[in-house]
């Protein structure tokens, strides 16, 4: 199994799990949100990695941006980058909405700790 060749995928999975763990394990809402962001970023990396094209007898970088010019023969797929641009916009909006909710939670509860909020609601 090619471990080094899949370096980016390994990083992506490690980030994904680290982010996921943060979402589950931390009681602080801002930390949860940071975890969620790391989790989403890992997916961006996954998309960008899969668009990269490389050919066996080639130095490190083979697939280039799709430029119509001599010397550029192997192109990487630009579509996943475009897709992930959209996903980044979605992620930024999600973060904005989440932060807005956190601000209002802080105003309403005086805390952004989950257990503290539960205690103040008497649950």
């Amino acid at each position: 199994m090619d471990v080094i060749g899949h370096y980016n995928y390994w990083v992506s999975i490690v980030l994904m799990m680290a982010g996921f763990y943060m979402v589950i394990a931390s009681a602080n809402l801002v930390k949860k949100l940071v975890g969620l962001n790391v989790f989403q970023t890992a997916v961006f990396l996954l998309y960008i990695t899969m668009s990269k094209v490389s050919v066996p007898d080639c130095a490190i970088d083979c697939g280039t941006a799709p430029i119509f010019k001599e010397g550029f023969t192997v192109y990487s797929n630009p579509l996943p980058s475009v897709l992930i641009l959209t996903a980044i916009v979605v992620s930024v909006s999600t973060t904005a909405v989440a932060l807005a909710i956190i601000v209002r939670i802080k105003e309403a509860y005086g805390s952004v700790e989950e257990d503290e909020m539960l205690r103040r609601d008497g649950e």
């Binding site: 949860k32 969620l36 979605v90």
Partner: peptide
């Protein structure tokens, strides 16, 4: 005010689902 808590919980789980 519990609506805010509910909304945040929905946001976290919903985002994980969508991702």
């Amino acid at each position: 005010r519990r609506a805010l808590r509910a909304s945040f919980q929905y946001l976290v789980l919903g985002t994980i689902g969508a991702t």
